[in-house]
Every structure is written in C-alpha cells, then in structure tokens.
Design a binder for these strands. Structure first.
Length: 554
RNA sequence: GGGCCUGUAGCGCAGUCUGGAUAGCGCACUAGCCUUCUAAAUUUGAGGAGAGCUAGGGGUCGCGGGUUCAAAUCCCGUCAGGCCCGCCA
C-alpha cells in the first residue's frame, strides 16, 4: 500500500503546508475499515491555525477529488478519511506478487554483506529448550537478512576451554562418553564438587595445564568438545539450522590476539592493574561507578572470557562489512554493554545485539547443572510424536510430514513471542496444533495449494471483481508484507513475521470459507485463483523465514 | 543498594518505539454453521471426526500521580516477576 500512502502524503502536503515526514507519521490506519484506509487527524493543524479541528477537516476535504489512487475522501469528526481505489490496489498487489513470486517482500539489497553469530551453546551437554530460543531467533534472522539480499555468514562460537569442559574431562576419567551421557556426567560431577570442594582444585589444575599447552590435557579437552559439538550440531541440523563457521575460543587463547589487544588497550589509558594484580579496564566514564569495571585477566596474567571474547568480536567486526549481529541471553546484557564500551574505546562499532529472556519452568529456573531442564531433543521427539498421531488419524503415511509439522509447531511456539518476554514452558501450549500455531498456518497453505492443483488459471483477470470484504482484507494484508519485512529487519524481530503469518492465514481461511473459487467461472474464478496463488507465495515465504516448511498436502 | 527487561480477560499473547475514533487474537467456556477446493467420513435422513468457519460471555491495560484536546502507549513514583552487578562463561 506504500504507493497509495505516498500519493496521499503528497496531496496533503500540497494542501496543508506541513512537511512530508510529519504528515507521514500523522497519517494512520483507522481502527475500523468503515472509516477508510488512511486517516489524517486534524488536531495539530487546527492548533496551528487556531481553528476548530472539525471545521479544519471539513474545509480540507473539499480539496480532494477522486483519482487513480483514491476513490473518495470523507470527514468524520476531526478526521479526514481516505478510501483508496481498491481495484487498483488489487491489481498492483497481486501482479507484483505473481511477478516476484518467492522474492516478493524482499528489500532487494545488492552487494551487502552480513555476519551473524548465534546459538553458541557451551559444549558441556545437550541443549535445553531455553538455549533453543537463541538458535531459532538467530536462524530466523539469518533467513531474513539473506532474503533481503545480504551475503551472509553464520558463526557459532565454542567456549572450548571453560571450567565446565575441565569438569567433564575429570568426570570422563579417560573414557570417551557418548553425547547423551554427558548431561548425567555433568550433573554428577557438579554434585561431587558441591560435597567435596577438594575436587575443584583438580579442575583448576587441568585448566592451568591446558593454558600452559600440555598436549595430553589439550587432547582430552578436544575429545570432549568434539563429542559435544557434533552432538549439538546433529540436533540443530535436524531442525534445519546450519552454520558456516565454528569458531573455537581456544584459538584466541593460543594465538597472540589477546596479548596484542592488551597492548592496544594500554594506549587508551583506561587499563590499570588493580590491587589484586588483575588487569582491569576502567569504563566508569560511560557506565558509572557500579558497573564500570571490566576485568580482563586473572592475577596470574591468564585471560578471562571477556578479553578473549573482545578479541573474537574484533575479528568478527573486521569480517562483517554491513551488518554484524549477535544473539545473546538476557544474562549477558550488562556484560555486553561493557563489551560495547570497550570496543568504543578502541574505535570499533559494536555488533547489533538481540537479547532474549529465559525460558522458565513451572517450578523455577532451568539449570543444566542441576538437571532440571526440558531437553530440546525431548521436545522434538514429543512434537514429532504428536504430529505422527494426528497424521495417523488422517491415514497419512508421509514420513517427512511429521517432522515438518511437529518441528514447525515447536519453532513457531518459540518465535511468536517477543524475545524480551520471559516464557514459562508448558507442554500443552508449546505443542498446540490449533489456533495461533504453525499447523494452522501450514494448513491454510495446503488448502490453497489444493485449489491450485485442481484447476488451471487463465490469465484473464478483472481486478475490480475482488470487492467483498474477505477479498479486500486479504489483498490489503498481502500488500503489507514488504512493510513487515522492513520492520522485522530493522528491529531484528522475527516475531513480527510470525504474528503476520498467522494474521494472513486467518484472513485466508475467512476468504476460503466465504469465496468459492472452483465453483465460480470466468474472470471471477481467474482473479480469485490469482489471489490464492499470491497468498501461497507470501505465506510460504513468511513460514520459510521462520525456518518452517510449508507442505502442499497435510 | 544500583542497572536493564516484563506486567493487557481464567490461562497464553499482539498492540507501547511513532499518543488518536468502540483495546485485538488464541486456548478454555457457551451456542450455531460446515459449502466448496486439505483430510476423513457420509452419501435419503440422522450422527461422528476436524489442525475449518460464525456468534456470544468474560477487561480497574499491575497500582498512584503528571503531561495532553486525547494515554495501554510519553514522564515521575510505586508494587510484583525475570536477569545482571571484579579473577564464571
């Protein structure tokens, strides 16, 4: 509807002497379609003119005539309501979609490059559903910016030298555990350490040997990390989530990056050694007394996570030409502002950040250490099982379909929520197949596909025939898609797309119910078929952007 | 103690950035419809299934104040939940 809005803005500018940007923000979509498609509130203008707003609206309305884009203008109270030429919108929208197909809605950027790091789960056990939130959001963002034309590389950061790995090395005791056994080992060793803190000393001994380059210890760490990374990746791949680069934290420990970085930081004059012999960056200028200290090394000079991550982030900044994005949990908010401030001292532009809040359980927080988690693999199995059950009821034998539907439901239940909201995990809600869920959306696509398979479309359209409220609302929503993509990409919020795709599916189902296609004939049938086809492109695109497949039959 | 995020119907959410005309949606609940083209069932009727449609009930937009012609939306305060605050990652 952009062309229509621009047109109205121009007309208003001519007649009010207000500048375009201001008109554009004032111009709104009325709450009720009976009030038109666009509405201009005259309160501000009335204030400037020192006149009654209702009179201003009524005077202004005289200047607007019917034209190619506008069918009529009405005033209602202090509002000037514009009704657009629906036949024109139908034609512009449907033709555009049929021309661009699955590219419709893209921002069509050229020659841009983006880097995104997401998931980056600690390699200590199987991921739980809380961690999956990072992967789903990250993957959806990757799909979104790729769709918009960016050449995109996806990174996964592996904290392969942490305390947790040392604990697992100790727990494994020279054996090579299977991936699914790691979580129990991890819980067990945590319990042991809690009972007997002496064991923790051994953990630090291992870490120390590792940092000094002890080959045997290095290999033990590698073995555990490898099992973990492979296991995690298998699960994520099964969900259709892929990475281009796996970046190992150890690389930044063993190469000279951290050392060089410290030298660079000396030049900022903000680096000091505290009275416990740690190297600390003073960020009080931007972050205040409470949170202004960013500790980079231990007393013995070995690096802390912050320093290694700073080195890694700079490496990414140098690779990312246009957009550099990272997805992190809400627990890292303060940490990230420190990182950002440190980068600023060095004149680097910090990555764009997407924070998400934690998934909680009814009984409280999830903790891998304590073992009170819902594992992602468990969630996936349940989702597939439920979908299988539904398919059996319908005597559908398609093997892949259970995953498409089950995993779709699971991803959708995570992605539909705004990332900053805490979510309390609930099996029934997470696995719902009705209402606001991905099977509902997929179903609408399947219905539309089925129509298209049964009849052939002639390209004899007559767009003014799409004139009942179901058709009109469907076209309008389709025409909003590029705007939704734009916003989602600006704010890095896949939930906008999730919410949109549900609205669209709902509008289609209303249309489906009220507007027969196959039963009709001639131009009406053809034009409706074109609308159905346009719908399938858009709904498929939006599902794909969430990492959800759209099946033609279900 | 300090900082950031969240609070909208019994439950789960959208709307808050960019203030605007009766606060939307889903689940659950009540009453209908089913006609297409997904699936299943039936094919006279009746009934069943459904991830389908329509309508209905249900709201102090956490609470208090302020700004404004106009506040769920902006500002201040307050309460509740989540996250963080120097050798974890």
């Amino acid at each position: 509807m952009d062309a229509f809005k621009q047109h109205i803005v121009k007309l208003l500018k001519k007649n009010t002497q207000i500048n375009e940007d201001e008109i554009s923000t004032l111009l709104e979509v009325p709450p009720n379609p009976n009030f038109g498609d666009y509405s201009f509130p005259c309160f501000l203008l009335a204030q400037n003119l020192k006149q009654n707003p209702v009179e201003v609206a009524s005077n202004l309305s005289k200047y607007f005539l019917k034209d190619e884009f506008i069918s009529r203008v009405e005033c209602k109270g202090a509002y000037l309501n514009f009704f657009i030429n629906q036949a024109k919108l139908n034609e512009v929208t449907v033709k555009e979609i049929l021309k661009l197909k699955e590219r419709y809605g893209s921002m069509h950027l050229k020659g841009k490059r983006a880097l995104i790091e997401h998931t980056s789960i600690n390699p200590n056990a199987e991921p739980h559903v809380g961690r999956a939130r990072n992967a789903f959001i990250g993957d959806a963002i990757v799909r979104l910016i790729r769709f918009n034309g960016y050449k995109t590389e996806v990174h996964y950061y592996i904290n392969d030298i942490g305390k947790q790995i040392a604990m697992l090395v100790l727990a494994a005791n020279g054996k090579k555990p299977k991936f699914h056994e790691l979580i129990d080992l991890y819980i067990e060793i945590n319990k042991k350490i809690e009972k007997n803190p002496e064991i923790e000393k051994k953990v630090f001994e291992l870490l120390n040997k590792l940092e000094k380059g002890n080959k045997k210890v290095k290999k033990q760490f590698n073995d555990i990390v490898k099992i973990c990374v492979e296991g995690q990746n298998e699960i994520l791949n099964d969900l259709g989530i892929k990475y281009d680069f796996f970046d190992y934290e150890s690389k930044y420990l063993f190469n000279k990056d951290c050392e060089n970085l410290l030298k660079e930081l000396v030049n900022t004059k903000k680096l000091f050694t505290d009275n416990e012999q740690r190297q600390v960056l003073d960020l009080r200028e931007s972050l205040g007394e409470e949170q202004g200290f960013f500790v980079l090394t231990r007393a013995d000079g070995t690096s802390l996570y912050g320093l290694r991550d700073l080195a890694y982030t700079i490496y990414k900044i140098k690779k990312a030409k246009d957009r550099n994005i990272v997805v992190l949990g809400e627990d890292q908010k303060l940490y990230f502002t420190q990182l950002r401030a440190a980068l600023k001292l060095l004149n680097y532009r910090a990555p764009e950040i997407v924070h998400y809040s934690f998934v909680l359980l009814q009984e409280g927080k999830m903790s891998t250490r304590k073992g009170n988690v819902v594992l992602l693999s468990e969630f996936m199995n349940e989702a597939e099982k439920k979908a299988r059950g539904e398919l059996d009821k319908r005597k559908n034998q398609d093997k892949r379909l259970a995953k498409i539907i089950g995993y779709g439901a699971l991803k959708y239940s995570v992605l539909k929520n705004s990332p900053e909201k805490n979510v309390i995990f609930d099996w029934d809600q997470a696995l719902t197949f009705d209402g606001e869920s991905s099977p509902y959306i997929q179903y609408s696509y399947a219905r539309a596909s089925s129509i298209l398979k049964k009849v052939k479309m002639d390209k004899k359209f007559k767009f003014d025939l799409l004139n009942n409220k179901y058709e009109i609302e469907l076209v309008k929503l389709l025409s909003n898609f590029p705007g939704v993509i734009n916003k989602a990409s600006r704010d890095l919020k896949p939930n906008y797309i999730a919410n949109y795709s549900y609205d669209l599916a709902q509008k289609f189902n209303e249309f489906y119910h009220n507007c027969p296609v196959i039963k009709e004939s001639g131009e009406l049938r053809n034009t409706r078929l074109a609308l159905v086809l346009a719908f399938t492109y858009v709904i498929q695109t939006s599902l794909n952007l969430l990492g959800i497949e759209a099946p033609e039959k279900m």
